[in-house]
């Protein structure tokens, strides 16, 4: 068993969306290396409540790396130093006694801070609403095995579909671009035969919505795939670019 640690936290505190925020310093004492990062913050918060101070607000839900709710930038890196891991699965054994850790919210114009480390990511929902689906009403479906799908296509679609919509790709991108998120959905549905009828429309609508939301533009740094907790590959972005060109060439934009 390794020993407990004492850490200094510098945390972004912001009262609400309209206020300005700033970094404040807290001490996290007797942190067990077996704690998850969020449990460490839980302990700090318990202490703050005891003292009558406002605890640090942060988002989390499933705490097993799948819901995509947790979202914080640790020392400049979304979800922290361990790759392929959401912050709820990051454990304190990756830190050393005496470390100073800076914790900030996702930062992007389309993700306004609601409080402290909590942001509003509904822009991502609106992008899905623009076309990130296959139009099949309940009960209309043909028999499941009527349409064979190659294992390769199905597996690749699953690679893209693994996206948890956390927004770390946006947070990591120096331009705050949402291309990895969009490409994951366009790739997932575009790789499957069921997704073909709406393929052109989907990419056109989703990109148009993405642009409307005020995300930045992709400059191919691939920081997104490096921080992605589900390791969604940036090659899906190339695929998205290709699909977009095809859709525009076919005149989808004026339909």
């Amino acid at each position: 068993m390794s020993k407990d640690m004492n850490l200094t936290l510098k945390v972004w505190r912001q009262k609400d969306q309209a206020s300005n925020g700033k970094m404040e310093t807290y001490q996290a004492k007797k942190v067990s290396p077996d704690m998850s990062f969020l449990e460490m913050l839980d302990v700090v918060n318990e202490d703050l409540i005891q003292k009558g101070q406002d605890p640090i607000a942060f988002d989390s839900d499933c705490r097993e790396g799948i819901c995509g709710t947790c979202s914080m930038v640790i020392d400049g890196v979304p979800h922290g130093p361990q790759r392929g891991t959401t912050v709820c699965q990051l454990h304190m054994r990756h830190f050393k006694d005496g470390d100073t850790i800076a914790i900030e919210p996702w930062r992007a114009r389309p993700f306004p801070v609601l409080k402290d480390l909590i942001t509003n990511r509904s822009a991502l929902d609106r992008i899905i609403q623009a076309g990130g689906y296959i139009s099949v009403s309940t009960g209309n479906a043909p028999a499941a095995n009527a349409l064979p799908i190659s294992k390769k296509a199905s597996d690749e679609a699953m690679d893209a579909a693994a996206c948890i919509g956390c927004g770390a790709c946006v947070a990591a991108c120096k331009n705050a671009s949402a291309m990895l998120f969009v490409s994951a959905k366009v790739g997932h549905l575009g790789l499957l035969p069921q997704g073909q009828p709406e393929r052109d429309k989907r990419v056109w609508k989703m990109i148009s919505q993405m642009d409307k939301e005020g995300f930045g533009n992709c400059t191919n740094t691939y920081a997104c795939e490096s921080v992605c907790p589900k390791r969604v590959s940036a090659s899906f972005i190339a695929r998205l670019n290709r699909d977009y060109a095809v859709a525009v060439a076919k005149g989808e934009c004026d339909r």
Binding site: W12, A176, G216, N217
Partner: peptide
């Protein structure tokens, strides 16, 4: 210009992780 506008509040620890020098 758009890329700059997409992040109006910069990170305090502005690391731009996993982004190589050339692209910056």
């Amino acid at each position: 210009l758009e890329n700059r506008a997409a992040r109006p509040v910069k990170y305090v620890v502005n690391k731009q992780p996993y982004t190589d020098f050339a692209s910056k």
